[in-house]
């Protein structure tokens, strides 16, 4: 199935699934410039990989695979180079949401911090789980069995709860 045949189709698909890009960028990059660069790189790689899309899978599953692979590689490369690429004029800008300082906001901020401290693969699993993906979809994206996905999620949740508890004490 050709998804990059014309820009309008591609744009519509990206528009519908832009939440995936935002979530991954926010989980793998701490600063705004990096998030913008990563988002741009993801869209470019999605455009390039369009021919590899298999209609047997959901579009979001395929998109997660490409985007997460780009994010993990980008994250490592960026960590190594430790520099920011200059923004071009048509860069995507990801705006930060409005800041509030309620308990809920503080917990969300803490969660974001805990996720950012995780290893890349753990982060990917958690991200997919938080997006209400089924174990089957997660296993297809990550490349491990459904049973292993369940085990991994349970462990990650335990780790997160433990971190929240430690923080509250």
């Amino acid at each position: 199935m050709e998804i990059t045949g014309d820009k309008a189709t591609f744009l519509a698909l990206i528009e519908q699934n832009k939440g995936i890009i935002i979530k991954i960028c926010n989980s793998y990059c701490k600063n705004k410039n990096d998030r913008e660069d990563l988002a741009q790189e993801m869209i470019y790689q999605l455009w390039r990989s369009g021919q590899s899309f298999n209609a047997d899978y959901k579009f979001s599953t395929w998109m997660y695979r490409v985007a997460l692979n780009v994010a993990i590689s980008f994250y490592r490369q960026h960590k190594q180079l430790n520099n920011n690429v200059a923004l071009s004029e048509w860069h995507i800008e990801i705006e930060d949401g409005p800041e509030e300082h309620t308990d809920k906001e503080n917990n969300i901020h803490l969660l974001q911090q805990f996720i950012s401290e995780m290893k890349e693969l753990d982060k990917a699993v958690l991200l997919l789980w938080s997006d209400s993906k089924s174990y089957r979809e997660i296993s297809e994206i990550i490349g491990i069995s459904e049973t292993n996905v369940a085990t991994k999620i349970s462990r990650l949740k335990d780790k997160l709860k433990q971190k929240f508890n430690q923080h509250q004490q």
């Binding site: 820009k7 990206i14 939440g19 890009i21 869209i43 995507i92 705006e95 949401g97 974001q112």
Partner: peptide, 27 residues
């Protein structure tokens, strides 16, 4: 908390997405 985190991310916006995709070929 996870739901709240997802909502917050949904509030974030991708600006200039359209113009960026229109320039995709150039990029």
């Amino acid at each position: 908390i996870m739901k709240g985190y997802n909502q917050k991310l949904d509030e974030a916006r991708l600006l200039n997405l359209q113009s960026w995709v229109l320039n995709l070929q150039h990029y």
